[in-house]
Design a protein around this nucleic acid. Structure first.
Lengths: 144, 144
DNA sequence: ATGCGACTTGAACCGCGGTTCAAGTCAAGC
DNA sequence: GCTTGACTTGAACCGCGGTTCAAGTCGCAT
Protein backbone atom coordinates (compact mmCIF):
# COMPACT_ATOMS: atom_id res chain seq x y z
CA UNK A 1 0.00 0.00 0.00
CA UNK A 2 0.94 3.63 -0.24
CA UNK A 3 0.99 3.72 3.55
CA UNK A 4 0.20 7.03 5.23
CA UNK A 5 -0.99 8.69 2.05
CA UNK A 6 -3.22 11.12 3.88
CA UNK A 7 -0.20 12.41 5.76
CA UNK A 8 0.86 13.98 2.46
CA UNK A 9 -2.39 15.87 2.00
CA UNK A 10 -2.68 19.54 2.77
CA UNK A 11 -5.15 21.43 4.82
CA UNK A 12 -6.90 24.38 3.16
CA UNK A 13 -5.02 26.77 5.43
CA UNK A 14 -1.74 25.24 4.35
CA UNK A 15 -2.65 25.52 0.68
CA UNK A 16 -3.75 29.09 1.24
CA UNK A 17 -0.50 29.97 2.94
CA UNK A 18 1.66 28.30 0.30
CA UNK A 19 -0.30 29.54 -2.70
CA UNK A 20 -0.84 33.04 -1.42
CA UNK A 21 -4.57 32.73 -2.04
CA UNK A 22 -7.25 33.25 0.57
CA UNK A 23 -9.15 30.14 1.71
CA UNK A 24 -12.28 31.85 0.47
CA UNK A 25 -10.71 32.06 -2.97
CA UNK A 26 -9.89 28.34 -2.89
CA UNK A 27 -13.47 27.46 -2.04
CA UNK A 28 -14.59 29.87 -4.76
CA UNK A 29 -12.33 28.13 -7.29
CA UNK A 30 -13.77 24.83 -6.20
CA UNK A 31 -17.31 26.04 -6.86
CA UNK A 32 -16.09 27.10 -10.29
CA UNK A 33 -14.67 23.65 -10.90
CA UNK A 34 -11.04 24.71 -11.10
CA UNK A 35 -9.76 22.66 -8.18
CA UNK A 36 -10.99 19.82 -6.03
CA UNK A 37 -9.81 18.40 -2.73
CA UNK A 38 -8.50 14.83 -2.93
CA UNK A 39 -10.40 13.91 0.23
CA UNK A 40 -12.19 15.16 3.28
CA UNK A 41 -11.22 14.69 6.90
CA UNK A 42 -14.68 14.99 8.28
CA UNK A 43 -15.76 18.24 6.67
CA UNK A 44 -12.26 19.53 6.12
CA UNK A 45 -10.80 19.61 2.66
CA UNK A 46 -7.56 17.72 2.10
CA UNK A 47 -5.57 18.73 -0.98
CA UNK A 48 -2.86 16.93 -2.88
CA UNK A 49 0.39 18.89 -3.12
CA UNK A 50 0.01 18.95 -6.92
CA UNK A 51 -2.87 21.30 -6.33
CA UNK A 52 -0.25 23.94 -5.65
CA UNK A 53 1.11 23.56 -9.17
CA UNK A 54 -2.36 23.76 -10.53
CA UNK A 55 -3.01 26.90 -8.52
CA UNK A 56 0.20 28.43 -9.77
CA UNK A 57 -0.93 27.85 -13.32
CA UNK A 58 -4.36 29.20 -12.57
CA UNK A 59 -2.73 32.28 -11.09
CA UNK A 60 -0.62 32.80 -14.19
CA UNK A 61 -3.56 32.46 -16.48
CA UNK A 62 -5.67 34.75 -14.32
CA UNK A 63 -2.89 37.35 -14.20
CA UNK A 64 -2.72 37.07 -17.94
CA UNK A 65 -6.34 38.07 -18.29
CA UNK A 66 -8.11 34.76 -18.77
CA UNK A 67 -11.48 34.47 -17.12
CA UNK A 68 -11.90 31.65 -14.63
CA UNK A 69 -14.32 30.01 -17.04
CA UNK A 70 -11.68 29.97 -19.78
CA UNK A 71 -9.12 28.59 -17.39
CA UNK A 72 -11.50 25.84 -16.39
CA UNK A 73 -11.88 24.85 -20.03
CA UNK A 74 -8.13 24.82 -20.58
CA UNK A 75 -7.39 22.79 -17.47
CA UNK A 76 -9.30 19.82 -18.76
CA UNK A 77 -7.81 20.06 -22.23
CA UNK A 78 -6.52 16.87 -23.84
CA UNK A 79 -4.53 16.72 -27.08
CA UNK A 80 -7.48 15.22 -28.88
CA UNK A 81 -9.67 18.07 -27.81
CA UNK A 82 -9.63 20.15 -30.95
CA UNK A 83 -12.16 22.72 -29.85
CA UNK A 84 -10.10 23.64 -26.81
CA UNK A 85 -6.95 23.68 -28.90
CA UNK A 86 -8.61 26.00 -31.31
CA UNK A 87 -9.66 28.23 -28.49
CA UNK A 88 -6.09 28.27 -27.25
CA UNK A 89 -4.89 29.23 -30.68
CA UNK A 90 -7.56 31.91 -30.87
CA UNK A 91 -6.46 33.15 -27.48
CA UNK A 92 -2.89 33.24 -28.70
CA UNK A 93 -3.89 35.52 -31.57
CA UNK A 94 -5.91 37.60 -29.16
CA UNK A 95 -2.99 37.93 -26.77
CA UNK A 96 -0.69 38.77 -29.63
CA UNK A 97 -3.01 41.54 -30.80
CA UNK A 98 -3.18 42.86 -27.28
CA UNK A 99 0.59 42.87 -27.00
CA UNK A 100 0.75 45.11 -30.05
CA UNK A 101 -2.01 47.32 -28.77
CA UNK A 102 -0.36 47.73 -25.41
CA UNK A 103 2.95 48.42 -27.07
CA UNK A 104 1.38 51.33 -28.91
CA UNK A 105 -0.24 52.51 -25.72
CA UNK A 106 3.08 52.39 -23.92
CA UNK A 107 4.60 54.54 -26.63
CA UNK A 108 1.80 57.05 -26.24
CA UNK A 109 2.36 57.20 -22.52
CA UNK A 110 6.06 57.59 -23.10
CA UNK A 111 5.34 60.63 -25.19
CA UNK A 112 2.89 62.01 -22.64
CA UNK A 113 5.63 61.92 -20.05
CA UNK A 114 7.74 64.44 -21.98
CA UNK A 115 4.98 66.48 -23.62
CA UNK A 116 4.21 70.08 -22.69
CA UNK A 117 0.63 70.49 -23.85
CA UNK A 118 -2.01 71.94 -21.59
CA UNK A 119 -4.09 69.98 -20.98
CA UNK A 120 -1.99 66.98 -21.84
CA UNK A 121 -4.82 65.25 -23.63
CA UNK A 122 -4.97 68.09 -26.15
CA UNK A 123 -1.50 67.39 -27.49
CA UNK A 124 -1.92 66.52 -31.17
CA UNK A 125 0.93 64.03 -31.03
CA UNK A 126 -0.63 62.32 -28.07
CA UNK A 127 -4.03 62.29 -29.76
CA UNK A 128 -2.64 60.84 -32.94
CA UNK A 129 -0.73 58.23 -30.98
CA UNK A 130 -3.59 57.27 -28.72
CA UNK A 131 -5.98 57.06 -31.63
CA UNK A 132 -3.78 54.36 -33.09
CA UNK A 133 -3.88 52.32 -29.91
CA UNK A 134 -7.20 50.74 -30.71
CA UNK A 135 -6.61 50.25 -34.41
CA UNK A 136 -6.47 46.49 -34.99
CA UNK A 137 -3.08 46.72 -36.68
CA UNK A 138 -4.25 46.27 -40.25
CA UNK A 139 -7.58 48.04 -40.14
CA UNK A 140 -8.34 51.16 -42.20
CA UNK A 141 -7.21 54.28 -40.35
CA UNK A 142 -9.82 56.57 -38.88
CA UNK A 143 -9.18 59.79 -40.76
CA UNK A 144 -12.22 61.77 -39.53
CA UNK B 1 -21.76 86.34 -32.14
CA UNK B 2 -21.01 82.74 -32.81
CA UNK B 3 -24.46 82.52 -34.32
CA UNK B 4 -26.36 79.25 -34.20
CA UNK B 5 -23.84 77.60 -31.86
CA UNK B 6 -26.38 75.19 -30.46
CA UNK B 7 -26.98 73.91 -33.97
CA UNK B 8 -23.58 72.29 -33.71
CA UNK B 9 -24.36 70.45 -30.51
CA UNK B 10 -25.20 66.78 -30.51
CA UNK B 11 -28.01 64.88 -28.97
CA UNK B 12 -27.12 61.96 -26.71
CA UNK B 13 -28.54 59.55 -29.27
CA UNK B 14 -26.32 61.06 -31.93
CA UNK B 15 -23.26 60.80 -29.73
CA UNK B 16 -24.17 57.23 -28.88
CA UNK B 17 -24.57 56.32 -32.54
CA UNK B 18 -21.32 57.98 -33.57
CA UNK B 19 -19.26 56.76 -30.65
CA UNK B 20 -20.65 53.27 -30.58
CA UNK B 21 -21.46 53.60 -26.88
CA UNK B 22 -24.88 53.11 -25.35
CA UNK B 23 -26.62 56.22 -24.03
CA UNK B 24 -26.63 54.55 -20.65
CA UNK B 25 -22.84 54.34 -20.85
CA UNK B 26 -22.62 58.04 -21.66
CA UNK B 27 -24.72 58.95 -18.65
CA UNK B 28 -22.62 56.57 -16.59
CA UNK B 29 -19.42 58.30 -17.78
CA UNK B 30 -20.98 61.62 -16.86
CA UNK B 31 -21.67 60.42 -13.33
CA UNK B 32 -18.03 59.37 -13.15
CA UNK B 33 -16.93 62.82 -14.28
CA UNK B 34 -15.41 61.72 -17.59
CA UNK B 35 -17.64 63.74 -19.87
CA UNK B 36 -20.08 66.59 -19.55
CA UNK B 37 -22.72 67.99 -21.87
CA UNK B 38 -22.05 71.55 -23.05
CA UNK B 39 -25.68 72.47 -22.45
CA UNK B 40 -29.17 71.23 -21.90
CA UNK B 41 -32.17 71.69 -24.13
CA UNK B 42 -34.74 71.41 -21.43
CA UNK B 43 -33.65 68.16 -19.81
CA UNK B 44 -31.84 66.85 -22.84
CA UNK B 45 -28.09 66.77 -22.92
CA UNK B 46 -26.38 68.62 -25.75
CA UNK B 47 -22.79 67.63 -26.45
CA UNK B 48 -20.02 69.41 -28.27
CA UNK B 49 -18.60 67.44 -31.20
CA UNK B 50 -15.22 67.38 -29.44
CA UNK B 51 -16.83 65.06 -26.97
CA UNK B 52 -16.51 62.38 -29.64
CA UNK B 53 -12.73 62.78 -29.61
CA UNK B 54 -12.75 62.60 -25.88
CA UNK B 55 -14.85 59.46 -25.98
CA UNK B 56 -12.50 57.91 -28.50
CA UNK B 57 -9.62 58.50 -26.13
CA UNK B 58 -11.60 57.18 -23.21
CA UNK B 59 -12.37 54.10 -25.25
CA UNK B 60 -8.71 53.56 -26.06
CA UNK B 61 -7.66 53.93 -22.48
CA UNK B 62 -10.45 51.67 -21.30
CA UNK B 63 -9.55 49.05 -23.90
CA UNK B 64 -6.02 49.32 -22.69
CA UNK B 65 -6.99 48.35 -19.19
CA UNK B 66 -7.22 51.67 -17.41
CA UNK B 67 -9.98 52.00 -14.89
CA UNK B 68 -12.45 54.81 -15.44
CA UNK B 69 -11.10 56.48 -12.31
CA UNK B 70 -7.57 56.49 -13.76
CA UNK B 71 -8.87 57.86 -17.02
CA UNK B 72 -10.66 60.61 -15.18
CA UNK B 73 -7.42 61.62 -13.52
CA UNK B 74 -5.54 61.62 -16.82
CA UNK B 75 -8.15 63.64 -18.66
CA UNK B 76 -7.66 66.62 -16.43
CA UNK B 77 -3.88 66.41 -16.55
CA UNK B 78 -1.93 69.59 -17.19
CA UNK B 79 1.82 69.74 -17.87
CA UNK B 80 2.42 71.24 -14.46
CA UNK B 81 0.63 68.40 -12.79
CA UNK B 82 3.56 66.31 -11.68
CA UNK B 83 1.63 63.74 -9.72
CA UNK B 84 -0.48 62.82 -12.74
CA UNK B 85 2.63 62.77 -14.92
CA UNK B 86 4.28 60.45 -12.50
CA UNK B 87 1.26 58.22 -12.53
CA UNK B 88 1.39 58.19 -16.31
CA UNK B 89 5.03 57.22 -16.18
CA UNK B 90 4.23 54.53 -13.64
CA UNK B 91 1.47 53.29 -15.88
CA UNK B 92 3.90 53.21 -18.76
CA UNK B 93 6.21 50.92 -16.81
CA UNK B 94 3.24 48.84 -15.79
CA UNK B 95 2.06 48.51 -19.37
CA UNK B 96 5.57 47.66 -20.46
CA UNK B 97 5.80 44.89 -17.88
CA UNK B 98 2.46 43.59 -19.02
CA UNK B 99 3.58 43.56 -22.62
CA UNK B 100 6.49 41.34 -21.67
CA UNK B 101 4.28 39.10 -19.56
CA UNK B 102 1.74 38.70 -22.32
CA UNK B 103 4.52 38.02 -24.79
CA UNK B 104 5.64 35.10 -22.67
CA UNK B 105 2.09 33.92 -22.33
CA UNK B 106 1.61 34.05 -26.08
CA UNK B 107 4.69 31.91 -26.51
CA UNK B 108 3.30 29.39 -24.04
CA UNK B 109 0.05 29.24 -25.92
CA UNK B 110 1.94 28.86 -29.15
CA UNK B 111 3.61 25.81 -27.71
CA UNK B 112 0.35 24.44 -26.39
CA UNK B 113 -1.04 24.51 -29.88
CA UNK B 114 1.52 21.99 -31.10
CA UNK B 115 2.02 19.96 -27.94
CA UNK B 116 0.86 16.36 -27.55
CA UNK B 117 0.63 15.95 -23.80
CA UNK B 118 -2.45 14.50 -22.15
CA UNK B 119 -3.74 16.48 -20.45
CA UNK B 120 -2.17 19.49 -22.09
CA UNK B 121 -1.54 21.22 -18.81
CA UNK B 122 0.75 18.38 -17.74
CA UNK B 123 3.26 19.07 -20.49
CA UNK B 124 6.54 19.94 -18.76
CA UNK B 125 7.45 22.44 -21.45
CA UNK B 126 4.12 24.13 -21.08
CA UNK B 127 4.45 24.16 -17.31
CA UNK B 128 7.92 25.63 -17.44
CA UNK B 129 6.79 28.23 -19.92
CA UNK B 130 3.64 29.19 -18.10
CA UNK B 131 5.44 29.41 -14.80
CA UNK B 132 7.64 32.10 -16.29
CA UNK B 133 4.65 34.13 -17.39
CA UNK B 134 4.21 35.72 -14.01
CA UNK B 135 7.86 36.16 -13.18
CA UNK B 136 8.49 39.94 -13.13
CA UNK B 137 11.24 39.69 -15.73
CA UNK B 138 14.22 40.04 -13.43
CA UNK B 139 12.97 38.27 -10.32
CA UNK B 140 14.61 35.13 -8.92
CA UNK B 141 13.26 32.02 -10.63
CA UNK B 142 10.93 29.74 -8.73
CA UNK B 143 12.88 26.49 -8.66
CA UNK B 144 10.63 24.56 -6.26
C1' DA C 1 -55.59 67.17 -27.74
C1' DT C 2 -53.54 63.03 -28.58
C1' DG C 3 -50.14 60.27 -29.42
C1' DC C 4 -45.36 59.09 -30.89
C1' DG C 5 -40.51 58.84 -30.13
C1' DA C 6 -36.50 60.35 -28.03
C1' DC C 7 -35.07 61.85 -24.18
C1' DT C 8 -34.96 62.30 -18.56
C1' DT C 9 -34.49 60.28 -13.73
C1' DG C 10 -33.40 56.97 -9.96
C1' DA C 11 -33.22 52.39 -8.65
C1' DA C 12 -32.58 47.75 -9.50
C1' DC C 13 -30.08 44.34 -11.65
C1' DC C 14 -26.04 41.83 -14.14
C1' DG C 15 -21.46 39.05 -14.49
C1' DC C 16 -16.96 38.87 -12.67
C1' DG C 17 -13.91 37.67 -8.94
C1' DG C 18 -13.92 37.36 -4.95
C1' DT C 19 -14.43 38.75 0.67
C1' DT C 20 -17.04 38.92 4.84
C1' DC C 21 -20.10 37.26 8.13
C1' DA C 22 -22.95 34.34 11.19
C1' DA C 23 -23.69 30.01 12.73
C1' DG C 24 -22.23 25.39 13.06
C1' DT C 25 -18.72 21.27 13.27
C1' DC C 26 -14.69 19.30 14.70
C1' DA C 27 -10.12 17.72 17.28
C1' DA C 28 -6.90 18.79 20.78
C1' DG C 29 -5.45 20.50 25.21
C1' DC C 30 -6.28 21.88 29.93
C1' DG D 1 -16.48 19.03 30.26
C1' DC D 2 -15.11 23.30 28.32
C1' DT D 3 -12.50 26.35 25.74
C1' DT D 4 -9.76 27.39 21.75
C1' DG D 5 -8.74 27.47 17.04
C1' DA D 6 -9.14 25.94 12.45
C1' DC D 7 -12.16 24.53 9.63
C1' DT D 8 -17.35 24.09 7.47
C1' DT D 9 -21.66 26.13 5.24
C1' DG D 10 -24.72 29.48 2.87
C1' DA D 11 -25.84 34.08 2.18
C1' DA D 12 -24.79 38.69 1.91
C1' DC D 13 -21.84 42.11 0.37
C1' DC D 14 -18.03 44.59 -2.47
C1' DG D 15 -16.04 47.39 -6.61
C1' DC D 16 -16.11 47.57 -11.44
C1' DG D 17 -18.47 48.75 -15.62
C1' DG D 18 -22.18 49.02 -17.09
C1' DT D 19 -27.60 47.65 -18.64
C1' DT D 20 -32.43 47.49 -17.78
C1' DC D 21 -36.62 49.20 -16.17
C1' DA D 22 -40.53 52.11 -14.73
C1' DA D 23 -42.21 56.42 -14.62
C1' DG D 24 -41.98 61.00 -16.15
C1' DT D 25 -40.86 65.01 -19.54
C1' DC D 26 -40.38 66.99 -23.76
C1' DG D 27 -41.14 68.67 -28.88
C1' DC D 28 -43.51 67.62 -32.96
C1' DA D 29 -47.01 65.84 -36.10
C1' DT D 30 -51.58 64.49 -36.90
Amino acid sequence: MTGEADEALLDIGEVARRSGLAPSALRFYERKGLIEPAARNGLRRAYRPETLDRLAMIGCARDAGFTLAEIGAFLGARPSDTTVRERMAAKEREVDARVRQLTRLRDSLRHAAVCDHDPLVECPDFKRAIRNVSVPDDAPMATS
